[in-house]
């Protein structure tokens, strides 16, 4: 069961603003999904090594060489707000 307080905590971690209705809905739906995925407990995985990579590849590198960067025009083309060739963001107030 994922209660509404937990939903709000998760939303906070995910930087998502949720309406009260969404909080209620996600509390129910996420609980249902989590109930479903708990099916995995039926499998014995005690001595199993987790798989993060399905391909047997290791040590992929690039050389330490500088190649051209993007033109400033292209860097900033999609910027919602820019100033002095930089991306502008609203003030960072850190609330208690």
């Amino acid at each position: 069961m994922i209660n509404e307080e937990e939903v709000r905590y998760i939303a906070d971690l995910a930087s998502l603003k949720l309406s009260k209705k969404e909080v209620e809905m996600f509390s129910k739906q996420l609980s249902d999904i989590v109930d479903y995925v708990e099916k995995l407990d039926e499998l014995d995985t005690k001595d199993i090594v987790p798989t993060a990579y399905t391909i047997p590849v290791k040590n992929v590198f690039r050389e330490d060489k500088v190649k051209g960067s993007l033109s400033l025009e292209k860097v900033l083309k999609n910027a919602p707000e820019k100033q002095a060739d930089q991306f502008r963001v609203p003030k960072i107030i850190e609330e208690d």
Partner: peptide
Amino acid sequence: DFYLKAQKVRTLIK
């Protein structure tokens, strides 16, 4: 409980 477990199940399936 979730992510690690799922990665282990991934091993089983693979």
